[in-house]
């Protein structure tokens, strides 16, 4: 399939039992693009994100990431997932390992690096998120913001082609949000392709190339942040933007 998009998802449907969560979503993302997905809770934005690396199995549709057909039964999904980093709302760091252990596990077991090489790469990744001095700490000894940055390091250590962020700052105390956004901004500047589900509108405004508004399992409208925030065409978008800006 000829495509110049690094992510090309078409007609994605997802049913959970009788619940129709995604009702035919198309999402194409260019290389080095930062796409922000916003929308009310239950609009399907997290589900869409989780379909992209097949943590969630779409009911129908097609997904091609970096030229790999994610839904083809012949695709080695574990190999494909290495190229797609994911950051979760609740960090999901492994509590029984140090920060460095968290970052090196997949380097060793999936990428097949030896211990020394994995640790060297792991330290570089921790350095990039500003936590070189926390390598030997366990998640329990780190703040929420630091844990999320370790989680980001765990993903970038594998040199992904795309990074998915699922509400990366929603579980953080307000004063810790800035450090995580700072790291995301750095990634952005290094040219990482990023798809972010989040309500950090300030960040969206000055970092995103495109904002996608979803509601009720569909993409309602999308465009540059200024257009979506200042001049939304749809009533539902206007109502949503109005709501979150009042906070």
């Amino acid at each position: 399939m000829a495509t110049n998009h690094i992510v090309d998802a078409r007609a994605i449907h997802k049913h959970f039992g009788t619940l129709h969560v995604l009702k035919g979503v198309d999402l194409k993302v260019d290389e080095r693009e930062l796409v922000f997905i916003i929308g009310p809770s239950g609009s399907g934005k997290s589900t869409l994100l989780r379909c992209l690396n097949r943590l969630e199995e779409p009911s129908s549709g097609s997904i091609v990431v970096d030229g790999i057909d994610m839904l083809d039964a012949k695709t080695d999904i574990n190999h494909a997932r290495r190229r797609i980093g994911m950051v979760f709302q609740s960090f999901n760091l492994y509590p029984h390992m140090t920060a460095l252990g968290n970052v090196t596990l997949a380097l060793r077991k999936v990428a097949g690096k030896g211990r020394a090489e994995a640790e060297a790469l792991g330290r570089v990744a921790l350095e990039r998120v500003g936590l070189a001095d926390r390598a030997e700490h366990t998640p329990g000894q780190l703040s929420g913001g630091q844990q999320q940055r370790v989680a980001i390091a765990r993903s970038i250590a594998l040199e992904p082609r795309v990074m998915l962020f699922d509400e990366p700052t929603s579980a953080l105390d307000p004063e810790l949000v800035g450090s995580v956004l700072e790291v995301m901004r750095g990634l952005r500047e290094s040219g990482m392709t990023m798809i972010v589900v989040s309500h950090e509108m300030g960040f969206a405004r000055n970092a995103a190339d495109r904002v996608v508004f979803m509601d009720d399992g569909l993409i309602v409208e999308q465009g540059p942040p200024a257009a979506i925030f200042e001049n939304p065409t749809h009533e539902r978008t206007r109502a949503f933007i109005g709501q979150i800006q009042r906070h």
């Binding site: 574990n78 492994y94 509590p95 596990l105 997949a106 077991k109 999936v110 990428a111």
Partner: peptide, 24 residues
């Protein structure tokens, strides 16, 4: 979420079980 994090980095089901789930 532990398994999801492990699987998202490319670990197989068995690897996630062995290195992430079982120790905990």
């Amino acid at each position: 979420g532990q398994v999801e994090a492990a699987r998202s980095t490319g670990l197989t089901r068995m690897q996630a079980m062995r290195y992430v789930v079982l120790p905990q």
